[in-house]
Design a protein around this nucleic acid. Sequence first.
RNA 1: GCGGGCAUGGCGGAACUGGUAGACGCGCCAGACUCAAAAUCUGGUGUCCUUGGACGUGGGGGUUCGAUUCCCUCUGCCCGCACCA
Length: 863
Amino acid sequence: MASPEERYNFLEAESKWQKTWAAKDSFKVEEPSSKPKYYVLEMFPYPSGRLHMGHVRNYTLGDVVARYKKAKGFNVMHPMGWDAFGLPAENAALERGVHPGTWTRQNIAIMRAQFQPLGLSLDWSREITSCEPAYYKHEQKMFLDFLKAGLAYRKESWVNWDPVEHTVLANEQVIDGKGWRSGFDVEQRKLNQWFLKITHFAEDLLQAIEGLDRWPDKVRLMQHNWIGRSEGARVMWPLLGRDGKDVGQSLEVFTTRPDTLFGASFCAISAQHPLAVKAAENDPALAEFIAECNRGGTSTAAIETAEKKGYDTGFKVQHPFIAGKTVPVYIANFVLMAYGSGAIFGCPAHDERDMEFARKYRLPVRCVVAPVGEDPVAFAAKLEAGDVAYTDDGVAINSDFLNGLKVDAAKRTAIEKLESLKLGTGTVQYRLRDWGVSRQRYWGCPIPIIYCETCGTVPVPDQDLPVTLPEDVTFDTPGNPLERHPTWKHVKCPTCGKDAKRETDTFDTFFESSWYFARFCSPHLADRPFSEIAAMKWLPVDQYIGGVEHAVLHLLYSRFFTRAMSACGYLNLKEPFAGMFTQGMVCHETYRAADGAWLEPGSITRTGEAASYNGQPVTIGRSEKMSKSKKNTVDPQRILDTYGADAARLFMLSDSPPDRDLEWTDAGIEGAWRYLNRLWRLATVAVTIPRGTVPATLDAGPTAVLRQIHRTISAVSDDLEKFRFNSGVARIRELTNALADLDRTVVGGNAVYRFGIETVAQLVNPLAPHLSEEIWHTLGNSSILTETAWPTFDPALLEDDTVTVGVQINGKLRGTITIAKTADKDAFETAALALPAVQKQLDGKPPKKVIIVPGKIVNIVAA
RNA sequence: GCGGGCAUGGCGGAACUGGUAGACGCGCCAGACUCAAAAUCUGGUGUCCUUGGACGUGGGGGUUCGAUUCCCUCUGCCCGCACCA
């Protein structure tokens, strides 16, 4: 039985150090400070009311960075807040009759308390809560400034409408064409919506990705693709009526392949195109076709299986280059209104979709590009007879003035010609669309706009901000409670004083998270969202950490907001996040009973490979992201109570690289816990050694360990800088093993041992802060480790005087030689050839060649 | 369909710019301590045959004195986008 001094009491120690840090304000930003700044931020949580393992991982990763940077001498800002608007609060209101605000604020209190035992180095004095008017009033003002600057506008647009919930759904809330909650078919509806003009910055947002060199390539690529820049041309096709006469209008089409214009055999427009709507006016069959297209699901499955369908409008358009040639205008279900001009020209020979469409509706296929080096006539004949489009590079044929030009040159020439004919221009299109921010929801920031019959759309005057949410709302009927509220929306017009109505939509909740990182710089400023001086001092965030699920939306919105805020004079900055890290998910095995029901990990009994539940066999499924629905969650609270924060932190950091998924296992957390106890036991031995400096002359054993201590400081520092926390932990464990094996009875043994334990405490501090403080304290230090500088290493001690290298024969390892580091090539060769194993292999014959890379390898090429 | 990533022992994963593959941990095996168990400690642990070797980083091929690392190709899994003209 271990004596009380030997047993590490994590519960007592962890809470003691947490109190000490709090009492000393250890994690408050130093103001003023001569140190360089470092801003560490993890994505702020939605207050669901319960901390989960994903949170623990996210905030632990950030905490390691924050503590390490602090030790390295930075003035660190590491704040925390709450992303507090959102749908779950309304669902809670619906299910339990509790007001969303009450529910949210209760959850925040619960979660704030749950954060405490994790021992995070957070500056709680900067806490912000996005659902409070003190926060959202600033974004109302910001929105009005965007409006003035032309960066916000209102327009009628098509939305996913849930007929049961009476609200707009985001694309990601539509699953297989049905509302994610109601399960009913989603309709396409036209609604007036507010938009933010993110497309204004499309080019800049795209170009600047290149400069985000501390972002994951994956995220940069996703943003690149999301913005989706493509170069092409706008082409005007003069429109002819059903009687064949010019109607004095043109159909505008966007294409990336103006070089294939001579292969055009039809034009197609979206069902939502104005011309389609007009054409349907006196054509009931066409109207029905359009309705069918609009009903067509937006779901991935629906699109995948959707057959290409078209409807001939009877209109024709005049080809821009070929006098007298016309092509028919179809309405096609695959043409998107939201991209380009909502109309295309079809060149079946060189576009897969057009080919499919042409074959279905028996439209001509004309080859106008042939691969270099192939016989154009034969190639064209084959292509025009087949069903496969040719989309690669080649040379223009059958194309009048373009003939003989390569695709790129032909594109340029075609555009020049279009421009000279005033029938088109070269242009750039983006896939990126403007950001629709209106939501028919209660629990969000009210959009500060008033609609007046006389004055139109009137911004709420500054002195009337914030527009706050009414408290007396009910959720017993579907739809937006703000819309139903008896008085809230009825106001006087600020301009003319007549009766007017408020906007009852609220902002998309991505609005709040698009600028909170700036609010943290001056979180309590009342009259402005943040001070420009503070924001310019702290921003950009030096290290941002969060899940990949926000790789596009949140990160892109924030980049846009930073530009928009700069355009409105709030600050002068483009990029909010200089460094970005995306952490992997926390996963766990899944368990199912015979009837298919998911079982909680805690409820099953494992016996080796098998598992059972109340005596019944259990199917063990693959490891998946922890989720309530699969019941494979592990409650952080239980882990903290059983093993403490340090063990939980250490396990999460050591088991897999932070950007990969982590599989939570009981054995893993046990292992971390065992290591901490072992380190504590080794430290209690060090305490018995009197303090003193390491003597200059040491025995071989202590010398080797001393070198390892220095090497470990160097390696761990490097690992922490590069987010290789798992390998940093491995290095620290290696050093711990070396210290445990060290013979302390020889000259310098004790001194090196004590120094080694102190160093391990320092190195492990960002990972397991409580135990390391306890060890540091027990070793007699009066300072606390949290406020102690990171250890330094002596470069002269990093490497040994000798080096051991492998000796290969024909690339196969036959032995090793240990030799002075300074030895020349001849010495390496002599030593290598002297090896018995080498002699045996060579069998008396001289080597054909000997390759020597000093310090690395000797490879003997035998004949 | 398009784009991207990954593949290493029973498991999670190391291996920096091509240079001793399997660090560190988990698990397992054996032993010590114990009446016993837990905890702890010591040793072993890629595979195959006999010391000594042979083989081995998803499969096949290539470059190289030397390849987990670079190139080609195939297979499998994961992620993003999804008729973007």
